[in-house]
Design a binder for these strands. Structure first.
Lengths: 284, 284
DNA sequence: CGAAGAGTTGAAGCTCGTCAATAATCGTGG
DNA sequence: CCACGATTATTGACGAGCTTCAACTCTTCG
């Protein structure tokens, strides 16, 4: 039942799996370049500059905190390998997870403005990060407008993801939330090429993280996941995620995927100059 | 009630009311300048450029839609007077409100990147807006780095507010959500000087908006508000908001206010260069 | 005045949280 | 290698918070 699904990706059609690893195939490629490459075409010069920017690397262990609320730093971290999580605690001990950082993601945009962080970021896995000096990053942005533009786009994308999460947490029920989130995270993993040969994903999240992501309790998450399994939708166990029924899952979660801006050239769907439409309050 | 509004500034004006209206007092001041002025000190040249940018104005009516999902435009709207709301619908008819736009706020950052909007924005009141041609805006940003920086900050602030909302919707119960939101919106109104002489606020939101903001039903919002009233916390009726117990409300909602970045020079609270702290998973 | 929107109230029920106990799994050290 | 504690996952019983449905009132506005 679920091997059949799983093999779809790997066997016959590797297309979806790696369509974002254009030319180079050497494993220790720079994930930042790959990521920005999705938003703009980078020249050799620009790629070199980015490579130089990431030269200082560091290995860190599971559970370490990258940035802490209220801190300012003259460095920005770039995730090279591993997964980090961004979150805030409430005084009552509850935690809201605000995002997951995968390879290629920057530990925040405070390089854009003098601004301290309002949350923590820490590691869900052992990881390797690059430590970018902000002033160097700034110079690169100044020297290469394309790079700056691409960086701004990552920020806009990030915000789009936040809005999507708000929608998810605010308006959907537990099953839908989970379904949507699973679609999102697997999509991101896929765009990074991090799909196992059997079509599953290795995602280092426990049910605790899932719960704190969607404002649910662990108990309830557990029950939902079990039902997913029983229904043949998703098999998530031992941090191995296998999606058995992609269609069903997307439909349940109302997942669109456009907002992730992963290598999609947004078709200009509608072009009403500065016109303001007539009164219209979209009747639900 | 609406005219008395304008006199607030001049009359007996309590301190808190006008601490963000530095020098000029002519009523039709440019709200964009005032807003950016909170992030940076603008030169006369810069102010002129911004004024020129906003020269094309337009009056619009309640319920009109400023921007529509999926559209791209070569203009950006700036709210001069009135209130707009940003939202998305789910296919099941549920709506999540993603933000409120008050005078001085820009109808989005798609001027930064070639990027279509993933939501609608429409008016909760009659309003006056300025229509900024994106290419002009871009030139101004190029010519005046200070302005660009300030604009980026508004974007970062916007994102901080989104995170705060996510926390709110995800982790608090109905009363806390409401309390938090009321703190936020009143704070923003206050920073705009839009406080009535009696200390109340005129906020054009119905309970429907409140519900869609926090992922609750109108019925439940109604009950909560009534209890607030009974408890002497807040009196919100007929779009007139009076906060009776600021302390109590803030405590209930866990409201901090720092994230709004309203005229606060962020003290560099903590200065650990690029150091990575020791393992520490903050035990709740 | 009549219609439409906004707010209120009550009853009933479902989703999800809470509490608590048990398994399963993992990392660590003896 | 097995034993140990710690984390993670599962299960059941129970209850609370919030939703749903429906009726009714009040206000606004043409």
């Amino acid at each position: 039942m679920f091997t059949s699904e799983a093999t779809i990706e790997s066997s016959a059609a590797p297309v979806a799996t790696r369509c974002f690893v254009p030319i180079e195939t050497h494993p220790p490629a720079n994930p930042l370049i790959e990521k920005l490459g999705k938003f703009a075409t980078l020249s050799g010069q620009e790629r070199d500059a980015l490579d130089r920017l990431c030269r200082s690397r560091k290995k860190l262990g599971l559970g370490e905190t990258l940035v802490r609320e209220g801190c300012r730093s003259s460095f920005v971290f770039l995730i090279l390998k591993g997964v980090a999580v961004r979150y805030r605690y409430l005084s009552n001990g509850k935690r809201q997870i605000m995002g997951y950082l995968l390879p290629g993601d920057l530990c925040d945009a405070h390089f854009l403005v003098r601004n301290y962080l309002d949350h923590d970021i820490s590691l869900l896995t052992d990881a390797e990060v690059a430590v970018l000096p902000i002033h160097e990053l700034t110079s690169v942005m100044a020297a290469f407008p394309t790079v700056r533009q691409a960086l701004l786009e990552t920020m806009v994308t990030d915000r789009a993801m936040l809005r999507e999460w708000l929608l998810n947490v605010g308006q959907r029920n537990a099953r839908q939330k989970l379904a949507h989130f699973i679609c999102e995270i697997s999509q991101r993993m896929q765009s990074l090429g991090q799909v196992n040969p059997d079509g599953s994903y290795s995602i280092p999240l426990t049910q605790v993280e899932l719960a704190d992501t969607m404002g649910l309790t662990v108990v309830h998450v557990s029950r939902c996941l079990q039902r997913f399994r029983a229904e043949g939708l998703v098999y998530w166990s031992r941090q191995q995620l296998t999606i058995l029924d992609v269609q069903g899952l997307r439909q349940l979660g109302g997942f669109d995927q456009g907002y992730l801006h992963i290598g999609l050239e947004p078709a200009s769907r509608c072009g009403t100059g500065g016109e303001v439409g007539p009164r219209s309050l979209v009747a639900a």
